[in-house]
């Protein structure tokens, strides 16, 4: 995944079955963000792997005051990359089991 300066990681163990998973997002490189980034903590949230869209969560973070509008795309991409990795690992685990 491209280094966007925004890090997204699992906030809980992934058993490969649950539809919703807890993720944690934080800024590693403030310089890569266009807007001024106030929050220096890690933001934990739940994401439904089947139904939800990363860019929508990013927009909610902007609306909640965590990020500037101009960084919504970067945040959305960071979440998308992590979600894609989670799904890829799940598919690999399933195919290995078969």
């Amino acid at each position: 995944a491209e280094d966007t300066g925004v890090r997204v990681e699992l906030a809980e163990e992934d058993d490969g079955k649950k539809a919703s998973i807890a993720l944690k997002l934080w800024v590693e490189d403030h310089k890569k963000l266009k807007g001024k980034y106030k929050e220096s903590g890690a933001i934990e949230f739940t994401f439904d792997l089947e139904k939800e869209v990363p860019e929508v969560v990013a927009q909610e973070m902007v609306e909640s005051g965590f990020f500037h509008e101009s960084d919504a795309k970067t945040v959305g991409k960071s979440i998308r990359d992590r979600v894609a990795l989670i799904k890829w690992r799940r598919e690999r685990t399933v195919s290995a089991a078969v």
């Binding site: 890090r7 990681e9 944690k24 934080w26 590693e28 929050e39 220096s40 903590g41 890690a42 933001i43 934990e44 949230f45 739940t46 969560v57 909610e60 973070m61 609306e63 909640s64 005051g65 965590f66």
Partner: peptide, 27 residues
């Protein structure tokens, strides 16, 4: 560690806590 919560109008809860220690040292 201090945590704060923000609930978005769409209902999603965002829990803010300190960045994981190990990651800070990696930089």
């Amino acid at each position: 560690s201090a945590t704060a919560q923000v609930v978005h109008s769409a209902g999603r809860r965002f829990i803010v806590s300190p960045v994981p220690e190990a990651r800070l040292k990696e930089q």
